[in-house]
């Protein structure tokens, strides 16, 4: 299967767009290499700002530039931009309505054995609680390209979390997305999985395996965590009667938490939240860690079947 990195897709797209728009600025914090920025700094030196290893300052300086009309894309590790710069995001980006977009790279557990200091497993909980923020987790490189297009048309502050490695390409090249609108796959009515980021591919694999067993589910690619597509969640709940959320994030406060907030006020269907539990994560690659927590085809299939059983018990 074709694989590509989201960071590579972003870098390619932003270089292309920045050549046409002098107000686009890319900001790095000694992160141009890990961001795969390639030739951008050399080709557009007047639209590239290097601020050294200082993420808080990077967000504030970016907000200052945005206040003067620049469209600023800050790119660096999600772990540092979400937690270390949290106050700068809250005050200088969101509360101040400055057009700064953070591209948080190597998000979730992408950094693997580099450990908890480098993991971002609480970023979604934090970012989605800040008024005015857009929060996105694209599922593949093509979606990242489409999202960049959308972000360029939008002057709201945003946090976009992407992974480090290559992820399977599931969306067609040139496909479009709408911020705040989930993408539905399969369309079955036995259960629904709501997933984001690289977990969408794993959810689709599980859906394919379930199809073979005659279990038909819906998979929602919830690339936008905020503003959340509540309509899609409620519709899926009414149609399928049970929901499993799957995310590369703490089980607290992320996509699952967001879905729960909607489901518990709008419906009473069983909900199961699959994510990283509240504990120290073992050393290993992201795939090894996800497998360890059962966040793979077999594990997701098992959770879906359990949910369907629960739904059926409730309906008896």
């Amino acid at each position: 299967m074709e694989k590509e990195t989201c960071r590579g897709a972003f870098s390619k797209k932003i270089l292309e767009e920045a050549k046409k728009d002098k107000n686009i600025i890319v900001v790095c914090t000694d992160s141009r290499g890990s961001a795969s920025l390639g030739s951008y700094p050399d080709e557009l030196p007047n639209q590239f700002v290097e601020l050294g290893i200082a993420e808080q300052n990077a967000v504030t300086v970016s907000a200052g530039m945005a206040a003067m009309g620049k469209k600023v894309y800050v790119i660096g590790p999600a772990s540092f931009y979400s937690m270390r710069s949290a106050e700068q995001v809250k005050v200088d980006m969101a509360y101040s309505h400055n057009n700064v977009k953070i591209i948080g790279i190597s998000g979730g557990i992408s950094y693997g054995a580099l450990g908890a200091t480098h993991h971002s497993l609480q970023d979604i909980a934090l970012m989605r609680a800040i008024p005015g923020m857009i929060v996105e987790i694209p599922s593949d490189a093509n979606q990242m390209t489409a999202l960049t297009d959308e972000l360029l048309k939008n002057d709201c502050p945003a946090y976009i979390r992407i992974g480090r490695g290559e992820v399977p390409v599931i969306n067609e090249r040139g496909s479009k997305i709408e911020i705040g609108k989930a993408i539905s796959w399969y369309g079955g009515a036995d259960a629904a999985i709501i997933a984001c980021g690289q977990m969408v591919y794993r959810a689709l694999e599980a859906a394919a395996a379930l199809e073979k067993e005659g279990i038909h589910i819906t998979v929602l690619d919830m690339h936008t965590i905020k503003p959340l597509d509540t309509e899609a969640i409620v519709t899926a709940a009414h149609k399928c009667g049970c929901i499993l959320t799957v995310e590369e994030h703490s089980i607290y406060g992320g996509l699952g938490g967001a879905a729960a907030e909607v489901l518990k006020t709008e419906t009473s269907v069983p909900l199961s939240i699959m994510g990283i539990p509240d504990e120290d994560v073992p050393n290993g690659t992201d795939s090894e860690v996800l497998d360890y927590y059962g966040m793979n085809t077999d594990g997701i299939v098992y959770r879906v079947k359990s949910l369907i059983e629960k739904k059926n018990t409730l309906h008896k």
């Binding site: 300052n57 504030t60 907000a63 200088d92």
Partner: peptide
Amino acid sequence: ANTGSLGHGLGLATGMALALKL
């Protein structure tokens, strides 16, 4: 600028001055 939390103004001013310079 929206201020209140201390230690933000100089960074904001830096960003604004940098944008003007660019």
